[in-house]
Design a protein around this nucleic acid. Structure first.
Lengths: 115, 115
DNA sequence: CGGTATCCTAAGGGATACTG
DNA sequence: CAGTATCCCTTAGGATACCG
């Protein structure tokens, strides 16, 4: 998190979702709590170090809730806070725009291949 | 731009707005065409190199239109394409979320100061 | 005015190994 | 299982200087 004084809302939002995997983590957690290893498996390519790092940052920013169960073997669950859910919802239009873009790119590629 | 196969729409969208200044550039251009130097002045802290770079990328991604006027002294205008305008609109909810977040942070800081 | 061309560094992440 | 601890490397972006 930056030292605060943001120039605008977008700045503040980007600051929170800045990190290669953060929005994917948000999406991975959006429906129910998930355990660490479970989440890791849902994000092919991410390392343990980085997942832990990004989860801590999201937690510090109030986006993710971390719940530790004192059992053996260890169990930790991550879930979205109300703010996290709201953030996820705010990302929906952007996702929709991205999907349209993908469709456009695919269509263009098909047109090029046909030519 | 990545090699395409995106995992989801968010990925594709982030790919486009990835770059420290891109959303700010989008915002700076949203109402009317702007010239290079004008835009630079509207983005305190950005260097000429980086502004040019990010503008080229946005242009390659079909977000920004670049129009060169063959006059002396040189004149170039940058504006948003239809896609760029749509992208900007898609960012609105995220900006709103960010503004709420800023308000929350400010309120918390005030509460802390009062204590 | 509207850019390139260089050079450089800070830091975000990847790979791997180890631990309570 | 759920993490730390290291080490390393790429790369985005800043500073500066020059060009058509």
């Amino acid at each position: 998190m930056k030292a605060h004084p943001y120039t605008c809302g977008i700045d503040a939002a980007i600051d929170v979702i800045d990190g290669k995997w953060k929005v994917l983590i948000l999406w991975a957690l959006h429906d129910r709590p998930h355990r660490f290893g479970e989440t890791r498996r849902n994000l092919p390519g991410i390392s343990e170090k980085v997942l832990a790092q990004q989860l801590r940052e999201l937690e510090a920013d109030g986006i993710v809730h971390r719940e530790v169960f004192d059992v053996i073997p260890p169990k930790v669950e991550y879930s979205l806070t109300a703010q996290g859910l709201a953030l996820n919802a705010a990302l929906a239009p952007l996702a929709a725009w991205g999907n349209e873009r993908i469709a456009r790119l695919v269509a263009e590629a098909a047109a090029t291949a046909a030519a």
